[in-house]
Design a binder for these strands. Structure first.
Lengths: 199, 199, 199, 199
DNA sequence: AATGAATGAGGCTTCATTCAT
DNA sequence: AATGAATGAAGCCTCATTCAT
């Protein structure tokens, strides 16, 4: 029974992929406020098809975030393998910033509405993916010990607005300066006692 | 010097204040996307009354931001006068964070759409108000020298998302931890060369 | 008793005149759709004052039309006095066209909403003023005999749209051509039997 | 050649027709200023449905005018085929007048705002449709030679106000008299030199 | 007596979502 | 299974008129 490959399933999968591609692009370019119609149009499918695969716009956002999360996990894994621990960690943060800089929708999810849109499970995976490189860096002594995974997520969120600076209508990349600034705070030598995270 | 604005009639002033109060509350609670009708309803006035004082929603946002800016400038002035320079500077940043924490609309203006919604003049005053305490702290040697006013605004923006954390629908105040973290980066001892701001 | 000149009456008259002046200009430039607020502003009075003198916007339109009607009657009188009857009649029509060409509000009253906005009395006077020059011209044999005063008003209305032609946003004066055309129809030699006016 | 528009789905076509019918009726009865909501209500559809077919009220007006233009072109074609050239031409003008008499919206388009609401293409087609019967009538010697297509449009516009006469709230059809009057001006025998159209 | 503040219905348009085809 | 049609609440804004000051 299981062996039957239903041919329509293939179509469905293709359409799903199309929608995801279109949504990825649209969200990246225009943010989460982009219309459902626009996404369907870009995907070359009807709105109904889109809603068949994703019961709600929120679900679509979740799915797109899932993709991004997968990439984030990939990036996190890479950060666990480099020779130079410190360099790998910096590269990790750097990539995270680039992801926000190049993806308005991702920035939206991370820093704004997002908190109420992604699933608890995704939230947990996000935290886990952040934890790995952090712990490795801490073990190597290049990052202060009093930071936890949640903190790294917050640092990530702090990077967000710095990737959104505009100067006369045109975007400017100021974030590398602020990533460097944040790195200054992450060094063990900079550490002063932090108020604990509540609860 | 004084803009020649004749004082509003008593009732008008009262209603204007009501609208501003309602807008302040509504923006603070629900962000800039709150509807004009909702604000008018909260103020207990008709939509037309609101539009008499503020020809556009944007103008209303500007006016609310103006109020906040005045408070911000007051806070900035206070930060120039305390005995303990370092302590005054920290208190300054602290107040800034509280302002964002308690005001979703302010957070919106600062970190999001805001750049395109407030006037250039307001933007400049915001920068100026940030510059004073920063320079004083730098002169006293408690803050690293390579930071400029724009950087303090970015630090302000970085604080934003940390004031927006939710845990199960309820807001939680994590931001003091991240303010402390950012302060670690601001200390002269933490300084490493930063990439310059472009242009 | 009657001899007392109440000083406030003078103010009132002045304000009334101001409003009329402003309305005349505003209606002439922008048509009847111009806002009441705009008129009050131009007059330098409050909206309430305007409404004290004219209970309704329609009443204001009537008053302005009254002015125009007075001028129209003056023009009509002049047309009764010239040496050359035919020439005087043409000048009369010409002036009527100019009045519409230079006064958007007048054109509006005449050709559009107006019919339902002016008083029956004004309507009658308008007709009477048209009748004089017409009858004189007919008596002199320069205009066909089967036209009545109402017809001349309709000819006047026909001229209206020809004074409103635009070419690429800019107004162009095509109406002299169409006045000449209409004059061709008014000559006795051109006459063929016309369907009678109903009622 | 054919614009590749896939045929509308049955229900969509039905609703589109309903909207057009409702708009036609509403515009005809109440003019172009009738509200979009009113049209949707008459059509028995939601406002959104209307906006799906016509992205803007202006577009709806254009579409209605398109229908009228098609009818006008049909009428124009008929005027090219009758045996009696003069009679056909008169019938043509007669129909044009009826169209305005029965359709306030059409009258609005033609004589008022319309110039800025219909497309340049429609404007050109209107002119072309007017030109055919005119030239035929001129070739047959029943209409004076110094008239051009634009003049016929102006004659059409002149007819407009004559179809809008009211007597005590009720419309009265006076226009046939004025059409006859205008025809008197169009006869070759009536011709006197006309001022040229500027530019 | 004059002012201009207040009103609120009405105007056009957008968009997430449901549902008939 | 796919489509796109339909919905209607909500959004921002205008304006003639009434009414408190």
């Amino acid at each position: 029974m299981e062996a039957h490959v239903r041919p329509l399933r293939a179509d469905a999968a293709r359409n799903r992929a199309r929608v995801l591609d279109a949504a990825r692009t649209a969200f990246a370019e225009a943010g989460l406020d982009v219309g459902v119609e626009e996404i369907a149009r870009r995907a070359g499918v009807g709105k109904g098809t889109l809603y068949r695969r994703f019961p709600t716009k929120e679900a679509l956002v979740c799915a797109i975030f899932e993709d991004i999360l997968l990439e984030f996990e990939r990036v996190s894994d890479e950060a666990l393998e480099g020779e130079e621990v410190g360099q790998a960690f910096v590269a990790f943060l750097n990539t995270c910033a680039v992801m926000q800089a190049e993806n308005q929708g991702f920035y939206d999810v991370v820093s704004r509405v997002g908190s109420q849109v992604i699933t608890p499970d995704q939230s947990a995976r996000f935290r886990t993916a952040a934890a790995g490189p952090l712990k490795r860096a801490q073990a190597a002594g290049v990052v202060r010990d009093d930071l936890v995974a949640e903190d790294l997520l917050q640092i990530f969120r702090m990077l967000g607005p710095t990737t959104r600076e505009f100067s006369g209508g045109e975007p400017v990349d100021h974030w590398p300066r602020y990533l460097a600034f944040l790195l200054d705070a992450m060094r063990p030598a900079a550490a002063t006692p932090l108020p604990p995270r509540p609860e």
